[in-house]
Design a protein around this nucleic acid. Structure first.
Length: 238
DNA sequence: ACGATGATAAACAGCG
DNA sequence: TCGCTGTTTATCATCG
């Protein structure tokens, strides 16, 4: 595992599109425009980076070349615009063990919401219909989408509401279901917050590593059943 | 018909 | 006291 920080890479003119891929081990993620000075640390397996770069070029890429890429050197060969298929996860699919999902097409970046700003209205059907995902899947996606891979219940609610308009207007019973799922499911584990630093109530919740694949499989099945147009499967988080 | 799974509702205790 | 969080139990629906 190698670690780099985004600001350092950006100073070295590391292409944003490359950073896009580097931010998540095994996953692609759009990097939001973070506030100036905010240092984001990123981690990835060097092997995964090699796979990505090899997929982008016609020849295999060594670990050395990949690590040079992380340092912002040797990028010219792979330089590409943000608009091309860097957001495509096919290279992960080729990798096989990283992306147990259906072959993916271009990933649609999530519009970034500003505090207090309402998101753009979703299509009527999407807004009014209940998502096909189980609560376990929703919780899983929310936690996986967090930088620390752990979230308090309140933030899990927030993630679901942000990503599924249905729950903006749904009655409060679904929150009960979320808590019910967290408590009952073996897939999720409660972590005590650091009392010295934490502000707010409750614990943090994370995904048990041994159940992660099962959760991914559940998502994949949902996706297969409902077709590739399902909104979530094309999200950067997955 | 049956079991597994998931959704929903509700009651209750603990905590800030 | 109040609201949130977490646990537990019960019931119902759906699916294989």
């Amino acid at each position: 595992m190698v670690t780099a920080d985004i600001n350092r890479a950006r100073r070295k003119r590391c292409p944003a599109a490359t950073l896009h891929v580097l931010t998540r081990p095994g996953f692609a993620l759009n990097i939001p425009p973070e506030p100036a000075g905010l240092l984001m640390r990123v981690e990835l397996r060097l092997t995964d980076l090699c796979w990505y770069l090899s997929a982008r070029s016609s020849s295999p890429v060594s670990h050395l070349a990949a690590s040079q890429c992380l340092e912002g050197r040797g990028l010219g060969h792979w330089d590409t615009s943000d608009q091309d298929d860097l957001t495509c996860l096919n290279w992960l699919h080729q990798r096989g063990d990283l992306l147990p999902l259906q072959p993916l097409t271009k990933v649609t970046p999530l519009p970034r919401q500003q505090p207090g700003q309402l998101p753009p209205p979703p299509p009527a059907a999407a807004a009014s219909s209940k998502p096909p995902y189980s609560f376990s899947s929703l919780i899983f996606m929310a936690i996986e989408d967090s930088p620390q891979k752990r979230l308090p219940v309140k933030d899990i609610y927030g993630w679901i509401v942000s990503n599924f308009p249905y729950y903006r207007t749904a009655t409060g019973g679904w929150r009960n279901s979320v808590r019910h799922n967290l408590s009952l499911s073996k897939s999720f584990r409660r972590i005590q917050r650091d009392k010295s630093q934490s502000v707010g109530k409750g614990s943090l919740w994370c995904v048990c590593p041994e159940y992660r694949l099962a959760l991914l499989e559940g998502l994949r099945k949902t996706h297969s059943y409902h077709g590739s147009s399902s909104c979530l499967i094309n999200k950067p988080v997955l």
